[in-house]
């Protein structure tokens, strides 16, 4: 009877990486500060490093801030970051609005030591004679393992 060979030496391996959920906390809001509008539309930009550029007919005051988030997850993993939408509407709650375009500092983050941070920069469009008031809006970031 012919005999066979089993693959026992160098048997195959089965494996899986079990993850635990990513924890994301906001550490700073995106704040454009205080702006005096002009008679023409202009923009206020905040860079990832928090530096604000005030479009020339506008006057800017107060302390600006870029958005910032802290991510905690499985050490060594890479997470993907996305914005649900890159446009956020700021409103004063009385039918006056403005739009800001947002951008992420990165779309992928390596969790070295199990954590990492990323930022949100933005460009706010201030309309001519924008109505006075405190305006706010919300944006959503999504973080997932790769």
């Amino acid at each position: 009877m012919a005999s066979g060979v089993s693959a026992a030496p160098g048997a195959a391996r089965a494996s899986v990486q079990i993850l635990r959920p990513v924890a994301v906390t906001k550490t700073a809001d995106l704040m454009f500060g205080t702006v005096l509008p002009a008679t023409s539309t202009a923009t206020v930009a905040i860079r990832q490093d928090g530096v604000r550029t005030c479009g020339s007919p506008l006057r800017c005051y107060g302390t600006p801030s870029a958005g910032r988030f802290h991510v905690v997850g499985v050490s060594g993993q890479i997470v993907c970051i996305s914005l649900a939408t890159t446009r956020v509407t700021l409103t004063d709650g009385a039918a006056h609005t403005m739009t800001a375009n947002l951008s992420l500092s990165t779309s992928s983050l390596a969790l070295a030591g199990g954590s990492g941070d990323f930022g949100i920069a933005g460009v706010l469009s201030v309309k001519a004679n924008q109505a006075e008031g405190a305006y706010a809006g919300q944006y959503v970031v999504s973080v997932d393992y790769q």
Binding site: P21, V22, A23, V24, T25, K26, D29, L30, M31, F32, G33, T34, V35, L36, P37, V44, Y61, G62, G67, F69, S82, A84, V88, L90, D92, M98, A100, L102, I120, G122, L124, V126, Q130, A131, E132, G133, A134, Y135, A136, G137, Q138, Y139, V140, V141, S142, V143, D144, Y145
Partner: peptide, 21 residues
Amino acid sequence: ASTSASATAVAGAASVTIVAP
């Protein structure tokens, strides 16, 4: 993007104060 059941979503706030002269 939001149909991934296991993605973590967090909200951030954007704000500005418009002042009168």
